[in-house]
Each structure stands twice: as C-alpha cells, then as structure tokens.
Design a binder for these strands. Structure first.
Lengths: 228, 228
DNA sequence: TCAAAAGTGTTTCGGATACACCCATGC
DNA sequence: GCATGGGTGTATCCGAAACACTTTTGA
C-alpha cells in the first residue's frame, strides 16, 4: 500500500435504516432496542462488511430485521460528526426504506425487539438517530411530492381512499378526495381492478394496482404528486 | 472499546468535491491532477481527519484548493463500492459546491494543477469520479429547478441576462427572456441597483443583488425556478 | 444611423382549486 | 330505509407559455 494511504486513519463505517411503514392510519418508523443500548430505542443498523457495497450492506441489514427483499431503499445522508458515537468514531451512512407493513408483519423474526412508532410520537433515540429520522421524513415528503413512491408503502392491491389516507398521513393534512383522485388517476399509473375491497365500507372501494411498465418510465421524472 | 466494535473492520474515509463554476458562458467543473495519478484528471479530494465532521473536512479541502470560504456546499452521496479505489478500500463522501468563479481565479494557489472543464466536455476521470460528476449535475438541475441556488454561481452583483445565461447553461436549453425575467422577479428575491453593467452591451443591463433576508427565508421552500 | 442587446405587455391555455351531490351496500 | 363511505362533475382562477415590438447607446 502506498504511503499516502498508510498515513491515514481508518474509521468504522456503519449503516442505519429509517424504515417507514403505513398501517392504514398513520405513518410509522420501525425502531429497535439493540444489545448494547438496551434502554434506548434506535434505528436498525449494522457494520459495513469488506465485500459489500453500501447499498448491499443496507439491504442485508434490512433483510436481517424484516426478512424483506426488493424493498424501496434510498441513500439519505452520511453522518460523521466526530462525537456522534461516544464509544468510537463511526461514520454512518443512513438509508431510508419504504416497506409494505403487512409483508413485514408476516416475516418478522423474533431476534430483535422491534416496534413501529408513529412519526408524530417518537421516543428519544440513540446518538444522532433522531436527526436521521427528521431528515428522512423531510426527504420522504420532498420526494413523494414529485415522485410516485407512495405505492411502495401499500400492498400491491390498494384503493384510492387508502392511498389518500397515506398521503394525508405523510403530509399531516387532509387532501380533497375529488381533487386527489383526479390527480392520481391523471398520471395513468394505476390500473383499476374489477375486485372491490370487502369489509371496510358497505359499498366497497375498487382496488387498483400500479402499472409497472409506466411506473418505471416515470419514476425518474417530476410529477407533482400532491394536490391542494 | 467494546468487543462488538473491536471485531469490526475500519475503512479509509475520503471526501471528494464536485466544484461548479460559471464563466458567463458555460457551466464548468473544477478538476485536478493529483500526485498519485498524474495522468488522470480527478475531483479534488482528501481524507477525513480525526477531529473533523464530514462537512468540515469537505470545507477544508475546498479551501485548500480554492482559498475560498463560505461557499455553498451540500452533501451529494456516499460512494462505497468495494473496488472503487483499487489500491485500498475507501468510502468516499462526495460534496458538491457552487463557487463564484471570479473569486476563485483571484485566490487560486499554484500548488495544484487545476483546470475548469465544461460539463459537456469532460475528460475521463479517476475511479468513480465520473459517476460523481454525473450525479452532481443531475442534483444541481433538480435543486436549481426549485430552489434559488443559482445566485451562488454569480458575483454579488449580476444582471438578469447573466442569470438567464446561467440557467441556459445548467439546463442546456434556451429560456424565453421575457418569461424568465418575469418569473425571477416575481419571487421578489432580487433588489435592483441603480448601477448598470458597462462594456458588455451598448445599452447596459441593470445590476441586481439578492435580498439576503428574503433569500434565507425561502431557501428551504419550493419555488419553481425554471420557466418554459 | 444602425447594430446589438435590454427591457417590457398581452393573449391564450391548462392545470389547480374549491365546492356538492348521487351511488352502492350492509345493517 | 338509512347511515356510511365511495365515487364523480363543474365553475373559477391563476400561473405557464407563446409570442413581438420599443428603447438605449456605442460605434
């Protein structure tokens, strides 16, 4: 190894995940209590391994907790204040992910103490994890306003009223259902199914799915996704 | 140190900066030839030091090259593919910055071989620096569309035609000057000075400055900054 | 006086908003 | 038959876009 490299101090590199879920009523974040810090809730995290990319590591860590693969995962920010972890200096790369909460419920392993918390009612968090969550919420709002990522939080089949409730929860507001539905449908990203939701309302709402092909075409472009 | 930490492998942490400048005609990126890799252009970079935050380190590195402080600096992305640096595994946190190119010209130290390249005519770059630049351009476009950050690339005093040329360069297009000027002025962020630009055109264009107070108020909100 | 850039005004169009009523169904 | 949530239509408004002429002044 060259001198210029040798003289440098290496640091531990961690990954932390802000895992969002939606239970039909409010937007939630999945928190855990980890071995070292039994008393404090924290984000799910882990260490970067030698053969992994950052994204692979974040993915693996997410899988370890939730058993889920193929979830929406996006790098949020690298956090590296010298004293952020008081024990040893660690640079943490935070990722946020959007999971279908019902998939998660079915796959969770008992290895961790994990719990969903409403984003409006979070406990104190370890280290700078509170900052990470705040930033993730901001980013989710920013992104969901212009990109159709909300679907990642719902089942493959969902109704328009469910989708509206999700956006209500993300933005902590109440959108007008007529304008909301018109706007969402005008993107042509949704395919109406013949099946109706049963059991929730008397009339029942039609299920929709995302048109995967169109979705991939536009996932990179601006859409203006929030009405009102 | 606790066992859980001890078992982990540490990595070198670097910072790389995509430094944007605008010379009045086209959008440029500042590249250097570094000691180790004399034949290849690369981004300006350096190592994270024990007592620094990531942002402080990026700032210091920027200062070392340009002599500039108080420049716009924003974290872009952390890059950590295992083989991105073939010599030793390094995680690099990339920052992008917007500098006033004339300030830079006056402060550059001769210590580095540095050169501005048009973003449409870049040489091959070291490691994954090409990806970093691509992403930075994408991010700049994304951000400048909705936030008034373009001013960071111009002198404190600038004319509307200069500002339009900057946006033309960023988006590689030609905006309509009537709509452009109306839209920019409608934000009420600019203060018209009595002084006119001399020497460039016969008639001369009025100088403007940014209303710092209003600028700070809106720098976090959405503005819809690109017309046409 | 003319060339070159600065500066400004109007019309049109489409999307955003606000708003209210009918529909389907289980009880 | 009625209560509950689902679904749709319209008028208005405002910002976006398209578009062309006048002004200033140095040469």
């Amino acid at each position: 190894m060259l001198d210029q490299y040798k003289q440098q101090q290496p640091y531990l590199v961690a990954l932390d995940s802000i895992i969002f879920g939606f239970d039909g009523e409010s937007l939630k974040v999945l928190l855990v209590k980890r071995g070292l810090e039994e008393k404090t809730w924290s984000l799910m995290g882990g260490w970067l391994q030698p053969e992994e990319s950052l994204e692979q590591a974040a993915s693996r860590i997410l899988f370890d907790l939730t058993g889920l693969t193929n979830v929406y995962l996006e790098q949020l920010h690298a956090f590296g204040n010298p004293d952020r972890d008081p024990i040893v200096r660690t640079v943490s790369v935070a990722y946020f992910s959007l999971v279908k909460i019902t998939d998660y419920e079915s796959k969770i392993s008992g290895a961790f103490q994990a719990q969903w918390f409403s984003i409006y009612d979070l406990p104190p968090l370890l280290f700078d994890h509170g900052d990470m969550v705040d930033l993730a919420i901001k980013r989710l709002r920013y992104k969901a306003a212009q990109h159709p990522i909300g679907f990642e939080l719902l089942n493959d089949k969902f109704t328009i009223p469910q989708l509206k409730k999700l956006y209500d929860a993300i933005y902590n507001t109440e959108f007008d259902k007529r304008n909301f539905s018109r706007k969402i449908l005008s993107t042509n990203l949704l395919i109406k199914l013949t099946e109706k939701q049963k059991g929730f309302s008397k009339r029942g709402a039609f299920y929709y799915t995302v048109d995967a092909e169109k979705y991939h075409l536009v996932s990179d472009s601006f859409l203006n996704f929030i009405p009102n």
